[in-house]
């Protein structure tokens, strides 16, 4: 299999396991997967193919696919910004993915705020902090997030403090 087919198969399998759906328009989806691979090749990380990435991982952290804005866009529009991830209705052909406005804040500190708002304000009385994998939602109660998500293999920097 080609790199594109391999990555597509992995994304598709991860999506199904975690309750997400890839765009059923396979030509469209394959082109997005090629975009992710192109970004991995030139930046070392899979930045969103539909946004202008900086190339620096720290700058791009919020738009490494799946981006911080995926779930909110799925809730509001039935698709992520690229329409790589879509709602069940779109996956089943009952609705069509349309272009949507980019909710990524222009300012860096607002991107941080978006992430922190998602992460919650923290609960007291817990023996350990709880970390949430932004890619698949896996929760880990420990002092530090795991180096690699045991569920989806996302790296440590994709975790946020959840509680």
């Amino acid at each position: 299999m080609s790199d594109t087919q391999n990555l597509f198969a992995k994304l598709d399998s991860d999506a199904r396991k975690n309750g997400y759906f890839l765009n059923p328009d396979s030509a469209f989806t394959m082109e997005l997967v090629e975009g992710l691979l192109a970004n991995e090749k030139r930046f070392g990380h899979q930045a969103c193919p539909c946004r202008l990435a900086d190339g620096n991982r720290q700058e791009d952290l919020d738009i490494i696919c799946p981006c911080d804005y995926r779930d909110a866009d799925l809730d509001d529009f039935g698709a992520c910004y690229c329409a790589l991830y879509v709602s069940k209705d779109i996956a089943e052909g009952k609705a069509k993915a349309e272009p949507l406005p980019d909710r990524r804040p222009m300012k860096r500190d607002e991107r941080q705020q978006f992430r922190e708002k998602k992460a919650g304000t923290g609960a007291s009385g817990l023996s350990h902090p709880v970390w949430r994998c932004r890619v698949c939602g896996y929760l880990a109660a420990r002092d530090e997030p795991p180096g690699v998500c045991p569920i989806c293999k996302a790296t440590k920097d994709r975790f946020d403090r959840f509680m």
């Binding site: 090629e34 975009g35 192109a38 193919p49």
Partner: peptide
């Protein structure tokens, strides 16, 4: 446009 963006294409 962006070279990787499918909506751009």
């Amino acid at each position: 446009a962006l070279s990787t963006c499918v909506w751009c294409k």
